[in-house]
Design a protein around this nucleic acid. Sequence first.
DNA 1: CCCCAGGCAGTTA
DNA 2: TAACTGCCTGGG
Length: 316
Amino acid sequence: MSKNVTISGVRDFNLSHIFECGQCFRWDREEDGSYTIQALDRVINLKVLSENPKEAASGNSKKVLAENLQDGEITLLINNCDKAEFDGVWHHYLDLDRDYGKIKNTLTANDDSGHMAAAAAYGYGMRLLQQERWETLISFIVSQNNNIARIKKCVASLCENFGKPIGVYRDKMRYTFPEPEVLAGCSLEELQICRLGYRAEYIRQTAVRITEDNEAWQRAAALGTEELSVYLRSLPGIGPKVANCITLFAFGRYDSFPIDVWVRKVMSRLYGLPENDTAAMAAFASDKFGDLSGFAQQYLFFYARENAKIVLKEAD
DNA sequence: CCCCAGGCAGTTA
DNA sequence: TAACTGCCTGGG
């Protein structure tokens, strides 16, 4: 509890944009604005010590769409973690080696509509986390036809009921994400303790598949993006959207472009593509965003969802 | 009480 | 292959 480490000179880093853009589900926003994160069989608390002066000066950054959200350096305070652990584990998890300013510039320069520029400015400090494969796979099966509040509860319940305790932090016992063999050994009734609904059967069957043919699962990481996607979609409960989330969030395939209801709205109402033509949307992303499609998707998704009334008001 | 949430799978035409 | 529909659950 007393271990601390500070990291200064961090650019393009905004806690709420990173954790509330829907890529991960095991975090809690604390009263002081810090975030407690559970991942990699560990738990830490992240706090931003020095705010971007320009953003702070703007008063309410949520209401400002563009100019005021320029880059600035912040200092991170990480609790329950020492320097060695941060360097060895969390630095990579938080994707701190990547230059997001450069990514935003490239995406913006390739889109003269101005929508990408607005979305990237709005989502200032968003980063794609380098998440664990197995946890991400199960979490996004849970996510289908579901809302974020309930997804978080389901995932937390899976950990509390079937994970291993890793100690008390901030007055709560923390647990690891359950291993494939554990979920594979659960009956449907046992899994339903977590209120997973019809997704319980998908999770059980997928856990069984991955346990029984673990080699295929291990080999998947070496596959090309399309072959990886085919493999993932062969697992119960994984369709095109969930597969794209997994390749993007857990396998670092940044050419992935998950198309969900929000991205569909953006593509149709901002970029003028036919509402139901996901193939055209995928082709558009591939052409316009290329190897940076995943970053574009996160900026656009977050921008649309947080500003639905403003951004998507035209065409009802 | 109704609507629906970051879809998927099975069934029709 | 495109369109249609049911699905667990609980938040708003």
